[in-house]
């Protein structure tokens, strides 16, 4: 009996360790035949077909068989906009899932993305650790990390308008459930960050954390380095210090 128990425990521990191994580590992902490296993807012209292997980091939305997904491999990130996806496949796109994506590289308001894409799920898993880009804010280098999962440290919450720490929609024209916009500063420069309601709706911790911010708070944040006419991170966590 003890032998069986030891065998079962060993097997369980091995499986558990294998499961943990993928998280936070380098994916070590050899690209399959015909698949671009991130470097090749970054160099590809807009409007050309691209094929990448990448890992789901977060999902924004699904509607009428189209999914919008934040993905990343060990070298860079890929924003997949309105990718063809059934509702049942969307459920399979959990964080870490490896997918092979074929689509077109495109740019919309400064955001480089893959559109008109299809995908297939492959074996493998990788979840990126947040890269601290606080010191890159305001620099030309920041855009090189577009769409990555990133963090910002020790930023100060600024007035978003009329003394409020945040606004529903960009100018306060929205209501609960809409995107939240808030301003944070570092070294005298102020930036607008967003809680994208399709990514993090009003039931999420980050949405409610931002609603409770006060002007002057010092915060650490994580999120995806989205672009809209300039840097416009989609924040997924906020910690008031």
């Amino acid at each position: 009996m003890k032998k069986y128990l030891a065998l079962i425990l060993t097997a369980a521990m091995t499986l558990a360790l294998a499961g943990c191994g993928a998280e936070g580590e380098s994916a070590g992902d050899e690209k399959s035949e015909g698949v671009m490296t991130y470097e090749e993807y970054a160099a590809a012209e807009l409007e050309t077909e691209v094929v990448v292997e990448t890992y789901v980091q977060a999902k924004q939305s699904w509607w009428e068989d189209k999914a919008t997904v934040y993905t990343q491999d060990k070298d860079g990130a890929y924003f997949l906009y309105d990718m063809a996806c059934s509702e049942s496949d969307y459920e399979k796109l959990t964080p870490g899932t490896k997918i092979k994506v074929t689509g077109y590289k495109s740019e919309w308001a400064g955001e480089v993305e893959i559109i008109d894409a299809t995908f297939e799920i492959e074996d493998g898993s990788y979840i990126a650790e947040a890269m601290d880009v606080t010191d890159l804010l305001g620099s030309d280098e920041l855009i090189d990390h577009q769409n990555k999962f990133v963090s910002f440290k020790d930023m100060t919450v600024e007035d978003a308008g009329d003394g409020a720490a945040f606004l529903y929609s960009w100018d306060g024209s929205g209501s609960d459930g809409d995107d939240l916009y808030f301003n944070v500063s570092k070294d005298g420069q102020t930036y607008t960050f967003t809680v994208e309601s399709y990514l993090c709706d009003n039931t999420t911790e980050v949405y409610n954390a931002v609603k409770n911010l006060q002007v002057g708070d010092t915060v650490d944040m994580e999120g995806f380095l989205y672009w809209y006419e300039g840097v416009n991170p989609h924040i997924t966590s906020v910690t008031v210090k």
Binding site: S169, W170, D171, G172, S173, G174
Partner: peptide, 9 residues
């Protein structure tokens, strides 16, 4: 519906 316009709200 508003045109993302606070005055309309």
């Amino acid at each position: 519906k508003n045109d993302t316009n606070k005055t309309q709200t």
